[in-house]
Computed example of a mutant assay.
Amino acid sequence: MKVWTIANQKGGVGKTTTTVSLGGILAERGKRVLLIDTDPHASLTYYFGIDSEELDNSVFDLFLQRKNLNKEQVLQMLCPTTLPNLDILPATMALATLDRRMGNQGGMGLVLKKSIDLLGDEYDYALIDCPPVLGVLMVNALAACERILVPVQTEFLALKGLERMMRTLYLMSRSQKRDYKCTIVPTMFDKRTRASLEAYKELKKTYGDVVWSSVVPVDTKFRDASLEQLVPSMYAPKSRGVFAYNALLTFLSELDN
């Protein structure tokens, strides 16, 4: 199973949209895909019309039951979506208390990785949507993956947030003695504005080949798809945004092969 984490220490840059879009396209291509929501706001979970507060289990329970977790327990926590081949491990507001309640306990950094490893035969891909805060959840998501996607809105305030994220990856790679495969994904690009054009130039100048050579454009179809609780590639398969994520997926597949 390939595990990708979608992370940035700034909100509103397209993390959930990227997770949903890539997951939907992969599922439509016949891949078995698991989406994992680690954000206490549960935007990814609510995207599919799932009210995690009414569920018996969520990502939070992985941490509660971490010492005795088995495959069947994890499978029971999953929820199907409206798209075949696409399941979700939902988030809940209880995750907001995780750092305070258990952050100092031993063995907390690899809970998600161990849980995903139990499902290695069940899925081809796992995509992890992260909260915009460095804590136990983001550490788990980074430790569990083999590739990190960092969506960045093409405007200068978002570039400042990217600096924090890249610093985090540097510190994590040193502490874990591993190199992360990282791809920065420029999002919400509007070619009509100077701000987007200048921000993209700055991204390429600062981070070079780590930045994907294309962009995800501003596309209202993303918002419309979320209102219908459908992945964008089902709602508007010929839209500019879906075309961009198809191109991104092709690019990532080439990197991994």
Rank of each mutant, 00 (worst) to 15 (best):
Q229I: 00
M108R: 12
M234D: 10
T18H: 02
N246Y: 05
L26M: 13
E163T: 13
D117V: 09
E146S: 05
M234N: 13
V218I: 02
A244D: 03
L118S: 10
R29I: 01
L22G: 07
Q105V: 13
L98E: 08
R66W: 04
S226P: 06
C145I: 03
M108G: 09
C145G: 03
D117G: 05
D99M: 08
K113Y: 11
P40E: 02
R192H: 05
V231D: 04
Q176H: 13
I36R: 10
L169C: 11
K201G: 10
A236Y: 06
L197S: 14
T250Q: 15
G208L: 03
R147E: 07
K10C: 05
Q153N: 04
R164V: 01
T18E: 05
Y46H: 14
S239L: 00
F63H: 09
A236M: 06
E254L: 13
C79R: 14
L69R: 10
L157S: 13
V211Q: 00
L83P: 05
L157G: 03
E163M: 13
D51N: 14
M108V: 13
I148N: 09
A42S: 04
K31V: 01
G106N: 15
L26F: 09
L110N: 15
G23V: 02
L44H: 06
Q65L: 09
Q9K: 06
S213L: 07
P132T: 01
E202T: 08
V242G: 06
V74M: 01
M138D: 06
D37T: 08
L98G: 03
G14A: 06
M166I: 03
D124E: 11
E163W: 09
Y123L: 06
D121A: 09
G103I: 13
V20I: 13
Q153G: 07
F243H: 15
V152L: 08
V210I: 04
T250D: 15
T220I: 11
N140F: 03
F60R: 10
V136E: 12
L75E: 15
Y123T: 07
L110I: 15
R29Y: 12
L203P: 08
T168C: 08
V139W: 03
P232F: 07
I36E: 13
M138A: 10
D224Y: 01
S239C: 02
A199W: 00
Y207L: 00
L142S: 10
R100W: 15
L69C: 01
M138P: 03
P237M: 07
V33F: 09
L157T: 12
T183P: 10
G103S: 12
L89N: 02
N70T: 08
D99G: 06
V185G: 00
Q73H: 11
L69P: 04
A126R: 04
T220Q: 12
K238E: 12
D179K: 11
V133N: 14
